[in-house]
């Protein structure tokens, strides 16, 4: 029963992933990714990670993908360019490399030996509900947690600064030449 659920979800995820890379239209790609992410969320539930599953739905499939769709539509960038590929050799090389990589990872995956019985280990996770996860987050991971909060602020400021339009005809940053024309006295004083 478990295996059937897993295979179904895995197939969904893989189909979604292929959709991401095969659709010419970027909007379809993004929607396919949403499908993959949702099925991944379900896989998380089977992996005793309920909290992460809900966060995956809310943050990833919700917020982040909406942001993607918004930008795609804002830039009207959903249509692919029909120019000639200047690097024709890349696509076959990538496909060959990808197949080898997938095979290699899958092969190594089955070398993995479980350190303890699965049922016992799964019990220790307590279902991955917000309570136990939060406890780890606010004790062992307090410093990374605070660091990430800082990172978010930096990201917000950075995003605003990147997208801000500079006033027409006015250069904000001075060039090196301009800097060099300052007299030493000005620099000292």
């Amino acid at each position: 029963m478990n295996m059937v659920v897993f295979v179904l979800l895995a197939l969904l995820a893989i189909v979604g992933a292929f959709g991401v890379i095969l659709w010419k239209n970027a909007i379809y790609s993004a929607l396919s990714l949403v499908g993959t992410l949702l099925s991944l969320a379900c896989i998380f539930v089977t992996l005793e990670a309920q909290f992460l599953a809900s966060v995956q739905v809310i943050v990833y499939a919700g917020a982040i993908m909406v942001l993607f769709l918004f930008v795609i539509m804002l830039l009207n960038a959903q249509y692919p360019s029909d120019e000639v590929d200047p690097l024709e050799w890349v696509a076959p090389a990538a496909i060959a490399g990808g197949i080898v990589l997938a095979g290699a990872i899958a092969y190594t995956a089955f070398l993995f030996k479980a350190p303890k019985p699965l049922e016992e280990a799964a019990k220790a996770l307590q279902g991955g509900t917000p309570g136990p996860v939060g406890e780890t987050l606010f004790t062992k991971f307090l410093l990374p947690f605070e660091a990430v909060s800082l990172l978010l602020i930096v990201a917000v400021v950075g995003a605003v600064a990147l997208v801000k339009r500079e006033p027409e005809g006015k250069q904000v940053r001075e060039t090196l030449e301009e800097r060099a024309t300052h007299t030493p006295e000005e620099v000292v004083a």
């Binding site: 895995a10 990538a94 990808g98 197949i99 990589l101 997938a102 990872i105």
Partner: peptide, 16 residues
Amino acid sequence: SYYIALAGILFSIGAV
């Protein structure tokens, strides 16, 4: 191992 294999496949698809 199945989950890891699935992750490897997804990763390779992403890379390609």
